[in-house]
Design a protein around this nucleic acid. Structure first.
Lengths: 336, 336
DNA sequence: CTGTTAGCGCGTTCAT
DNA sequence: ATGAACGCGCTAACAG
């Protein structure tokens, strides 16, 4: 291991000047002569000097690091969002810490708390699926620069980057109706979060706008077990014969396909399927699947930009709420 | 912001004991009385004390942080690997920094260099696609605990976690032959890395074992532009009429599908397709697609475990080379 | 068992 | 324009 770490002390010794001078020179202080600066810079480069981050953090209370807290890295939406975040962070010379909560609220809070002692300059977070921690976050935003993205608590007046869940959900439902669907089932996920509820409202209101009665029976709630979802969907088909499926989360797609296969229902002839999805392989999905795709990368990008705005302005008392647009991607020649 | 950061000094004052005593008590030193320890712990808990990481890093030269350097986060393989890494890190109480190189060698080196000043205790890396930096890494492994995973330099005698690329590629080719293919095209990616070359060798040797002449014309090299790949594949079909496609990287799947669609070739009737892939939505792919799937999560898991073994033993001079098995997942009732 | 002291590497006074 | 001295928060050596 490098026992001969090069630090400003070493530079100072080699140049026969004081540590303070080296420090100032490295920071391009106006009170150092050009000549000295050059000597310092040259040697620093020659010796491959880089400042010790722990030491400068301790002094300056800046870590050049942000944290991203999300439910799951191996999720198309979040991995794309991270990509966006990482890109912005890199431009600002920042480092990015990743934490996944696995939808576990306690883990989420535990991670977050572990970041409050100055480990990071700011946090980007996409909360787990419930609002139990509303009070927690209300306090938290006073302690650390924090930007919520995608999964937010609506009741919190802070920085939030979201998508137009209501509008896109409305449009999606309208699309299914336009395609001739009369009985559209709604596969419900993220029920405890604004995003999930907004998607549900969009669905309901689109039905209303088309003077179609809302039918509680056509609503299916997400279960954590995949087989259970398949069973539930099959049962839904058997009992209520929907001619359209609108899934509010990506996790329902596979169960829907499996259920249809099991029941020999073909898509989109027998039933039209539309789902929220960020599957990178969406192009390959059965061409009958129309999707609503969120701009995951852009959300990460915007969220990070927002955080850096806060970090630079030092003032993070003013709320900001950015809403990005999702895209309805139609897959078939029949447009359904 | 919390200007009233609670530190050991504060604890010491409130308890009327010395800073050193508090420090020792917090670290459960044997030389502190149970009574004092409890007083300290209670107050620490009450005040929500957590040690300042920068300060303890500076002192102890331990950061409780590791870095992961990969080409791209939003890639099914790497996001799963990160998931595995993150899990192991969490168990050890470590933090995880993420960097993506976008296959850019300079960025890769720049990131890596930025980590050599004590920002992290160790690095997990999956190199970009060339061996230009062989010398660089040969020096690097002496400076910092480093584990390579998936994309490695074979010539480096260090810690490497890889998969059985040659064997699985051989098996895949054999599978296509068993399915009746006579002319199998090979879509070549990662050519400059051992993984890519091993996949190619597996293909070649399987042909040889079946006494089929290798035909240079059936090899297609990956281009960065998707449309270009589509064109190339179409041309391949037009000129050489392969009855099987073996893609050594996931990135060829979509172009292959598009080319087949454009040429009205149906899979697997007209042409059998087999590809390396970690697409999470693989289940949904055209059921004609058989895949070789790498244990991405396990690779991350093993790589991280390996790194922690190094960190704990302090001795990272002994090489270690773990090879995990990939899985051939058949999709159709016809097994092709 | 507890306290005093020193220093990790850096940045920031304040003198000179 | 340069340097001496202090302290960020913590740990570890050494006293007592």
């Amino acid at each position: 291991m490098a026992s001969d770490q090069v630090n400003i002390k070493r530079l100072a010794q080699e140049l026969n000047i004081s540590i303070a001078t080296v420090s100032k020179a490295l920071n391009d202080s106006y009170e150092i002569s050009a000549k000295t600066k050059n000597r310092v810079w040259d040697l620093a480069k020659a010796l491959n000097y880089t400042p010790n981050p722990a030491a400068s953090n301790l002094r300056s209370h800046k870590t050049k690091t942000i944290a991203v807290i999300i439910p799951d890295v191996a999720n198309n939406f979040f991995s794309l969002a991270i990509k966006g975040i990482e890109e912005v962070a890199r431009i600002h010379g920042y480092h990015v810490l990743i934490y996944q909560t696995h939808e576990d609220t306690e883990m989420e809070i535990s991670f977050t708390n572990s970041l409050l002692n100055g480990r990071v300059d700011g946090i980007l977070t996409s909360v787990s699926s419930n609002e139990y921690n509303n009070d927690y976050y209300r306090d938290l935003v006073k302690k650390v620069p924090l930007v919520f993205f995608d999964r937010v608590y609506e009741s919190l007046q802070t920085f939030k980057i979201t998508t137009d869940d209501y509008e896109s959900s409305f449009a999606a439902t309208q699309h299914l109706l336009d395609c001739g669907c009369k009985k559209i089932a709604f596969l419900f996920g993220l029920e405890k979060l604004p995003a999930g509820r907004a998607r549900f409202s969009g669905y309901q209101d689109a039905l209303k706008a088309n003077e179609i009665d809302f039918d509680e029976q056509l609503i299916l709630h997400y279960e954590n077990l995949e087989e259970q979802n398949v069973d539930n969907i099959e049962q839904l088909f058997q009992q209520h014969h929907p001619d359209g499926i609108f899934s509010s989360i990506e996790e329902f797609i596979i169960p829907t396909y499996l259920a249809c296969r099991n029941m020999s229902l073909s898509i989109p002839q027998d039933v039209k399927v539309l789902s929220f999805s960020n599957l990178s392989s969406a192009k390959l999905l059965n061409p009958a699947l129309t999707t609503i795709t969120q701009p995951a990368f852009d959300i990460g990008h915007e969220a990070a930009k927002c955080l850096f705005k806060i970090l630079n302005n030092k003032g993070f008392d003013d709320e900001q709420n950015i809403v990005l647009k999702s895209t309805l991607i139609k897959r078939t020649s029949t447009n359904c």
